[in-house]
Amino acid sequence: MKRAPSLIIVPCVLIVAFLLTLLPMPGWTVWLRPAWVLMVLIYWTMNLPYRMNVGFAWFIGILLDVLTGTLLGEHAIALSIVIYLVVRWDSRLRMFLMLQQALCVMLLVFLYQFILFCVQGFIGQLPKSPLYWACSFTSMIVWPWIWMMLENMRRRFRVV
């Protein structure tokens, strides 16, 4: 009974992640923007493994491509590969301590960035700052907060 309406929270959180991705940031701090959409997807995949799947991540990736003006399919392939790994490891990831989890997220974000980097390399538009890679560190730092916030939200709206 309660389940159907409470799932609305999933797209709502994703929309907030999109807004954070579009939010203008001053100067060089644009390079430090955490991978919001990816982290939100990782969280939902870890906690609702039977509802989230690779296809959904791919679809979100296409939306992200259109919003950020990258090649159509670039974010889609990166997101679906990372989410595939999360689906394979979800039970293990959930058992980890927060620190271990954050380190795993850093590795996953790094992989995501690496795929984007490769695609950008193929089309000859590499990011011009080494700060590009710092995004995985900022993502790692933000992860515990995202986890706690979404965990609270999930309990309150009883999403299972």
Partner: peptide, 13 residues
């Protein structure tokens, strides 16, 4: 599924 989606993405790109 991932395999097919990856192929579609590459074709799109």
């Amino acid at each position: 599924r991932l395999f097919f989606l990856a192929i579609i993405s590459i074709a799109l790109m």
